[in-house]
Design a protein around this nucleic acid. Structure first.
Lengths: 126, 126
DNA sequence: CCGAATCCGTAAAGATACTG
DNA sequence: CAGTATCTTTACGGATTCGG
């Protein structure tokens, strides 16, 4: 995936934007959300995939690796046949939850306004 | 720019991920941050550019349009020569501030851990 | 001159198809 | 089952041009 780092000379490697950029890609937040609300302690690759019908296996795989790199999930490999890999949220991910919840609530309060604002400017010719 | 919408069948047009994905691109948060801490009521294009030495004019222009589309900033054009365009945060952007601040604080508390976690896995050969 | 729009190139993100 | 190899699309940067 590469997951390149956001860089500029004013805030070299600005942690805020770098952390957020990697969390706010297409799938990462959804993976965290699904792991969280599953109630289970951990989930397997295919379990996650079933909860996300539209994600490709490749993107699920890469998203999980990135989340692991950043310490939001753990990845436990069982050397069995067929292979088994289990994913679980870390404390770091759980500590993010209250903030994500407040963002979620803000989004719900503003989503209609924002989406209709977007249409105003986008659909000049549509 | 295209700024395509995040879509999946489970949460069609999920507002949280869509709102966050557009805010967490390479430059948007920095623009909001600079407008906010400037203290001024509004800023001109070149003023913003000077605060962001690494952004291209193209990306600044596009970022500002997207932020305007989503109602986070206003764009006021003065028909003068040379032309003048002023940008200001809206109430919507300001209402986001407390949440962004808590995210910022969380990022600062965790940045060292996250960045060192990343290095562990990334710099296998570097 | 300021604030873009446009064209073009690169690299990263992401989808489709295949494998140990 | 849990990924990788290959291909397409999008984001982003640089240079140039343009209308006021």
């Amino acid at each position: 995936m590469k997951r390149s780092t956001i860089q500029d000379s004013m805030f070299p490697g600005c942690p805020v934007r770098n952390i957020l950029a990697r969390l706010c890609d297409k799938w990462a937040l959804l993976v965290i959300y699904i792991l969280d609300r599953s109630g289970k302690e951990n989930m397997r690759f295919m379990e996650l995939k079933q909860q996300m019908p539209d994600i490709s296996q490749r993107m699920l795989s890469m998203t999980l690796r990135t989340l692991e790199e950043d310490g939001y999930i753990t990845r436990t490999i069982f050397s069995e046949i067929p292979p088994r890999v289990e994913y679980a949220l870390t404390e770091r991910a759980k500590s993010l939850k209250p903030i994500l919840d407040s963002l979620l609530q803000w989004s719900f309060e503003h989503m209609d306004d924002i989406m209709s604002d977007r249409k105003k400017t986008v659909s000049v010719n549509d």
